[in-house]
């Protein structure tokens, strides 16, 4: 690992860990969306990362709009941009489920192909309607700063904010799932679709809304993404594989697993990336994942209650 002293390595690991926090939040939210869709509908959404990009663009365009038209508002627009990113991704997801996915249930291979096609179509739409050039959001000052925890350790504020928001979002989702009618419909549909219909619940509508919510969550991940990098039409392609890995390593179907594996992969990849080039770091990352999956073939936390 080169000529670093122990103290330096310690500081690097701590700092890279915190810069990995933003990535972790994105992984967790993406994994969560994929998990919700897969759990309820048995669909693997290959276009999921394009909803992340959709959320990023929403944030960037909203930022541009605010800077040009209502500069006084610049410091606070982020607060409204996040729900807006959710809303846009929800809306598009809702329509995609209605016109595409709902016609392909029980045909897993076709859905795989169709959602892959959808991801290409969405990328082309971004290119045609928004432009191929990279875009970024003007983030307010307060989000860009960092907090000096010690004289060699700096922790970015944005990472802390994202972590807090992610925790809020997940608690909110858990409450939504257990306390609302819609949540009950979603749980019932996931556990036994036919029976749910036979009790008077419109399972197709439930699917549509669930799919929308999952896409909306990845839209929020997209809004978060603007704090880390600039957005381009194909920005999502780097994230889709990793998001699936988070899901698989976590053991399909466990929220705790999602958290642990999201954290594990994000931290590992940002620490590795500090010491070596991106692609070598990826090789090491996949090797570690490979070893983990050899040892825990069903993921770190597989769902044992499932019957």
């Amino acid at each position: 690992m080169g000529d670093y002293t122990f103290d330096e390595i310690y500081a690097i690991v701590v700092m890279q860990s915190f810069s990995g926090v933003s990535l972790m939040c994105i992984y967790i939210l993406m994994g969560l969306g994929l998990y919700i869709i897969f759990g309820q509908m048995g669909v693997i959404n290959m276009a999921h990362a394009e909803f992340l990009v959709l959320g990023s663009y929403t944030m960037c365009l909203f930022s541009k709009f605010v800077t040009e038209n209502m500069p006084a508002f610049e410091n606070y627009y982020v607060i409204f941009a996040i729900p807006l990113s959710f809303g846009v991704a929800f809306g598009v997801g809702y329509l995609v489920e209605w016109f595409l996915i709902s016609r392909l249930y029980h045909r897993p291979l076709d859905t795989l192909l169709a959602t892959w096609g959808l991801s290409l179509i969405m990328q082309q739409c971004f290119r045609s309607f928004i432009g191929a050039r990279e875009m970024s959001a003007d983030l307010p000052e307060w989000l860009l700063g960092s907090w000096a925890a010690s004289d060699i350790i700096d922790i970015p504020i944005s990472g802390l904010v994202l972590l807090l928001l992610t925790v809020f979002l997940i608690v909110g989702l858990a409450l939504f799932k257990t306390k609302t009618r819609m949540g009950l419909r979603m749980q019932a549909t996931t556990q036994n679709r036919e029976m749910t219909g036979a009790l008077g619940i419109n399972t197709k509508m439930t699917d549509r809304i669930t799919f929308g919510i999952a896409c909306g969550i990845s839209g929020i991940a997209g809004a978060f993404f603007t704090t880390m990098a600039s957005t381009s039409p194909s920005a999502g392609t780097n994230y889709i594989v990793d998001s699936f890995l988070v899901l698989v390593v976590g053991g399909l179907g466990s929220l705790v697993g999602l958290f642990v594996s999201g954290g594990f992969l994000a931290l590992l990849s940002s620490i590795l990336e500090f010491f070596m080039t991106g692609s070598i770091a990826k090789v090491w990352l996949y090797l570690v994942i490979f070893v983990v999956l050899m040892k825990f073939t069903r993921g770190l936390f597989s769902d044992k209650v499932r019957s």
Binding site: R181, L184, R185, Q187, A188, Q191, N192, M195, T196, A198, L199, G200, I201, V305, S307
Partner: peptide
């Protein structure tokens, strides 16, 4: 209304929530 063979209770929902699934359309 339908009570299937094998009952098809939602295994991971509480008893109350199982009943509430039937209330959804009312």
């Amino acid at each position: 209304a339908y009570v299937p063979q094998g009952r098809m209770i939602f295994p991971n929902l509480s008893v109350t929530d199982n009943i509430r699934t039937g209330l959804d359309s009312t």
